[in-house]
């Protein structure tokens, strides 16, 4: 870059240089660049990557873990963690499946009702962590076991299927060519971005994560906000679970088991701090996309299964390093 461009940044950001400076200040720029680079590499190395079918598959895969990751981001922002989200997704899928098949509730009502159920599950964690001030790691470790166990008690390990044609639209349908779960994921991301940036509730979330005691002192009703955040996290996880069930036409007891670490990883590589108070929704969305693109690329490039987890770990490390250098 020329000297003139640099000095123009110093005076008043304008044009391309200004945009670049703004971009570098943007919280999610590191993960965004990593995502774009990975996509470019794959587009060259694996022609199938850019096919419309493959892109919709990747986006849909990202949206399931992504919904859980959005919930995890909220909890991380208040300085907590929720280990039960994967299990909550599984249990919600089962309960939603039963609403459809055993109770006979209308398919369009099942998704919001399941979301309410997920909110309730989340508030169980919220009660113990926010009201009784117990360590969220321990509380959600316990509720993880209880939710996963309840799933097995209800199902005896058998899936609930079929769920019916009307219901499958939520998992397989498209709105303007975009898969429904992706639309719901992006909509949830947009709403949360707005809430975090523009509402008092959102600012309070950051305040609590930054310094809980200070937040208390300035009169923020901390426990109520924490309670609701855990509820929202449960709700987002339950959406992931029920949408996955709709995609597969089957509420499967083990669904959600593998989402916990993926969701935490997506949030963290998206720039959310484990210490609370720092992170963005857009970062998490990119994080979820990066993980899904990576998993897709591993299959497309036929990477040996034995190496796969090593590579995922390395890419996560690189993503964090890119972010570190950006901040310096």
């Amino acid at each position: 870059m020329s000297e003139a461009a640099v000095s123009s940044v110093r005076r008043k950001p304008q044009g391309l240089a200004g945009a670049l400076a703004k971009f570098r200040q943007w919280d999610a720029s590191g993960i965004f660049v990593a995502l774009i680079v990975l996509c470019l590499v794959l587009a060259v190395a694996a022609p199938a990557f850019l096919s419309q079918y493959n892109l919709s598959v990747v986006a849909r895969q990202a949206s399931f873990v992504g919904l859980v990751a959005l919930g995890q981001t909220l909890v991380l922002l208040i300085g907590g963690i929720d280990l039960s989200l994967g299990a909550a997704a599984g249990l919600s899928a089962i309960v939603g499946g039963l609403m459809l098949t055993s109770v006979g509730i209308h398919p369009y009502l099942v998704v919001p009702l399941t979301a309410c159920f997920g909110f309730l599950l989340g508030t169980i964690n919220g009660f113990f962590t926010a009201r009784l001030r117990l360590n969220p790691f321990i509380v959600t470790l316990a509720s993880w076991e209880i939710f996963a166990g309840a799933t097995l008690v209800i199902t005896k390990g058998y899936p609930i299927r079929p769920l019916g044609d009307a219901f499958q639209w939520f998992g397989r349908g498209e709105i303007f060519g975009i898969p429904v779960p992706v639309v719901i994921f992006l909509a949830a991301g947009l709403i949360l971005s707005y809430v975090l940036a523009r509402t008092r509730f959102g600012r309070n979330i950051y305040a609590i994560g930054g310094n809980r005691d200070a937040a208390n002192l300035v009169g923020i009703r901390v426990w109520r906000i924490e309670f609701i955040v855990f509820g929202l996290a449960g709700m987002l996880a339950s959406l992931a679970g029920i949408l996955y069930a709709a995609r597969m036409n089957s509420a499967q007891p083990s669904v959600g088991e593998g989402w916990l670490m993926g969701a935490i990883t997506a949030a963290i590589i998206g720039g959310t701090s484990l210490r609370g108070g720092q992170g963005t929704i857009i970062g998490t969305i990119f994080g979820a996309l990066l993980m899904a693109v990576l998993a897709n690329g591993i299959v497309l490039l036929n990477v040996s299964g034995y190496w796969e987890r090593v590579i995922v770990g390395l890419v996560v490390l690189i993503a964090i390093l890119v972010d570190l250098f950006r901040r310096r």
Binding site: A295, N302, G305
Partner: peptide, 12 residues
């Protein structure tokens, strides 16, 4: 070609 899940995870 073998495309092998490292863990028995239904979603994966």
């Amino acid at each position: 070609r073998w495309d092998e899940p490292p863990q028995a995870d239904v979603a994966d």
